[in-house]
Design a protein around this nucleic acid. Structure first.
Length: 96
DNA sequence: AATATGACCATAC
DNA sequence: TGTATGGCCATAT
């Protein structure tokens, strides 16, 4: 019996991120888990950098802060969908 | 081929 | 409350 070939990491991530409902957020680790690669959070961030057509701004860090590299734009987009974002010192943080 | 570098995370101290 | 360490994954050099 042929086994179902695992999706390439990039496709698995695309699927996982597109599944995040508007107005909600998930952590890089949660996306990695949903994509079938528990522990591959870093790879998720790496993919989001190039992936197109996905709501990348709904992916945040586990501690609720936004990755510095894209924080300002991400905060803007999240607020646009009603997610409360607050500046916390050096970085932005999503209100739970 | 080997190493370094990130939109990261969990654990240990 | 910080810093260190090891794990993870795809590029870049």
């Amino acid at each position: 019996m042929p086994v179902t070939p695992p999706l390439p990491f990039s496709e698995a991530v695309r699927r996982a991120v597109r599944a995040i409902p508007r107005g909600q957020v998930r952590s890089y680790a949660q996306v990695a888990l949903y994509a079938g690669k528990p522990g591959a959070a870093r790879g998720v961030g790496r993919e989001l950098k190039t992936l197109e057509g996905v709501p990348w701004w709904r992916v945040i860090r586990s501690d609720g802060t936004l990755a510095p590299a894209v924080a300002p734009e991400q905060a803007r987009r999240l607020k646009a969908e009603g997610v409360q974002v607050k500046r916390s010192g050096e970085h932005f943080r999503v209100q739970t």
